[in-house]
């Protein structure tokens, strides 16, 4: 990936991607989004390569969360939502009419800002995604649950208490549980919407480490307000402002030598 020195990442070809067969490539083409009359996204093109971590940064209301939620069609539930353009995952436009949204979401996991475990046991939380797929094989479910909890680095802490309510866990543990719950379905893409903003520094560090490890198997996009976090964990950084993609490049480039003045002002804390 070091080959990609040019700033035109948007059109970067796929041949130099080191893909595992699990992770997926995402392409956005001229994407525009409205909420009623308000245009939240004003025509964005972007290509996100497999097995990378991409950070979306920008001030509140810049459209980064809206853009993130396009990839698993979570905006579909928002009243007044309207969208134009294409979003392709592995070459398939996910906004075509016949797309099965439920199937799509099994491929694209999401972790939210506030840990949101179900008010059920730890085990049931992780097994939920499998259960709704109609999987009944107990042994299979047990294995998947354990694997997901190990991946999320939570297994050692909860293995003796799988029947305990998930709500009894600490905030950091809850967020790792939510990650495990997502991983149990074995998606190829992980969307994270400010996953550490409600957590203390130690929990945050744990989750960042986790993201770093998960990169091997997943394509990860993370929305963050924390500049240090973006520079620590991401390979690419996209800076959004007022519904537009101002700059999208390698993280190191964005943070050391940004192309645009606005980006520089934002990351140096002059506004936002």
């Amino acid at each position: 990936m070091e080959k990609l020195k040019d700033k035109k990442l948007v059109s970067a070809s796929t041949e130099d991607d080191i893909t595992s067969k699990n992770a997926s490539r995402i392409e956005a083409k001229d994407v525009k989004v409205w909420y009623d009359d308000f245009q939240a996204i004003k025509g964005i093109d972007m290509v996100i390569k497999p097995n990378t971590v991409t950070a979306f940064i920008g001030p509140s209301g810049c459209g980064k969360s809206t853009f993130l939620r396009l990839f698993n069609r979570m905006n579909d539930y928002v009243e007044g939502f309207r969208m134009e353009g294409k979003i392709k995952i592995e070459g398939n436009n996910i906004y075509k009419k016949k797309v099965n949204v439920e199937e799509l979401r099994k491929e694209i996991g999401m972790v939210f800002q506030k840990p949101n475990p179900f008010p059920k046991s730890i085990f049931e939380n992780v097994a939920y995604g499998l259960k709704i797929q109609g999987i009944k094989d107990k042994k299979f479910i047990n294995e998947r649950v354990e694997k997901a909890l190990r991946q999320a680095d939570l297994w050692e802490e909860v293995k003796d208490n799988l029947k305990k309510s998930a709500l009894a866990l600490s905030g950091g543990q809850q967020q790792r549980l939510c990650i495990a719950r997502t991983l149990a379905v074995q998606p190829s893409i992980l969307l994270m919407d400010e996953p550490t903003s409600a957590l203390d520094p130690i929990s945050t560090a744990k989750i960042e480490e986790l993201i770093h490890n998960l990169k091997e198997d997943y394509t990860i996009i993370i929305v963050t307000h924390n500049m240090q976090q973006a520079s620590r964990i991401s390979d690419y950084t996209a800076f959004f402002y007022l519904g537009e993609l101002i700059e999208f490049d390698k993280t190191r480039k964005v943070f050391t030598n940004p192309e645009k003045k606005q980006t520089e002002n934002y990351i140096t804390g002059r506004f936002g």
Binding site: E102, E103, R105, N116, P119, I132, T182
Partner: peptide
């Protein structure tokens, strides 16, 4: 019921009915 529970269920690929019934 908090919206976050709904979001979590949908994001895991649950249908509307599954979300209503299970969560």
């Amino acid at each position: 019921v908090p919206k976050s529970i709904r979001d979590a269920s949908y994001a895991l690929g649950a249908s509307k009915w599954q979300t209503i019934w299970n969560q």
